[in-house]
Design a protein around this nucleic acid. Sequence first.
DNA 1: TCGTTTCGTTCGGTTTGACGAACGAGCGCT
DNA 2: AGCGCTCGTTCGTCAAACCGAACGAAACGA
Lengths: 185, 185
Amino acid sequence: MSQPAPPLAAIAAALRQERERAGISLAELARRAGLAKSTLSQLENGTGNPSIETLWSLGVALGIPFSRLVEPPSPAVRVVRADEQTRLRADRADFTASLLTAGSIHARRDLYVMELEPGQPREAEAHIPGSIEHVVVAAGRLKAGPAGDTVELDPGDYASFPGDLPHHYEALTPGTWAVLVMEHR
Amino acid sequence: MSQPAPPLAAIAAALRQERERAGISLAELARRAGLAKSTLSQLENGTGNPSIETLWSLGVALGIPFSRLVEPPSPAVRVVRADEQTRLRADRADFTASLLTAGSIHARRDLYVMELEPGQPREAEAHIPGSIEHVVVAAGRLKAGPAGDTVELDPGDYASFPGDLPHHYEALTPGTWAVLVMEHR
DNA sequence: TCGTTTCGTTCGGTTTGACGAACGAGCGCT
DNA sequence: AGCGCTCGTTCGTCAAACCGAACGAAACGA
């Protein structure tokens, strides 16, 4: 599986879109970013291959995280019923997780529903560097966190911690389930 | 508040780190990416300002999402207790929302806990174009969705829909609450 | 002690991205 | 109309990103 596509045109489209959302002219954006109008014009027309510094300054001038200029989107309207979710059962723990929505290529923000029962805790391997996990407990009581630094959470509690270290999920009461947001980058 | 930093050095470090993690030589990576060894050498030493195409081809050759080359890390460990969350009370509905985590500038993916009581539904204005809302019901019963196209959700159910149209949240039972992910772009 | 291989860096030459100026088009005002 | 301003594009020039080749260092055998 390789990268989506030569991002030349995607960047061009993203640039124009973000600029128009900001409601500023091409000349104004060029001024704020410290670039020549001509350069920006070429970029928005898909002609040209900007340097990192150039694109970066545009991201700063637009007040957006820069990755938005290189990674495109994808909307939809979906409903996944609790009893229609495809469970991913882990082999070594009483644990299920359901992927509800995945980000674009190499998912950026994946949303899961996670169910656990007391007993064997789930020991998760370290994911790719820079990932962050967010948990909101919906019911039950959950112990979660990086190895050796766990916290106990009640319904409504929220916790986030690095996902690129080995970490731990353990239900303390039956019927525990939680919403899990896996944030990659 | 501007972007973190001139990413020149960060990219250099990320490149070298990812290459060494992949266990390949500079020459080998240059070959796979279709670049000159000299170019890659300069990049890893922080000398030079690569074009998007150049950096992209390196991302492909390394098999990583490319954003990892431009956005360094930043871990943390946060816990927000259910009773510590700062409620944002809407004026026209029995509705509270708590922001748990916000993306960087012009937030990309905000995570809320939302509580509603039956009665007046919450009619949300249209947000900025391209935003998407994700809801997982934790308890109770929730009617949600774009105006005129709502669905009813039970605990564990998930729904997503465009946030850039007027939409609707209405609790059907007391004690309804849900996890809400606001995805901007 | 030589060859041989691979590593990463440094050195000229060529391609090209970015600049500044000029251009035509559109709009508002007198 | 005429003027003034801003919009976005196009054109020539220059700096620099990228290339290919050559280089020294280190490792390994013959």
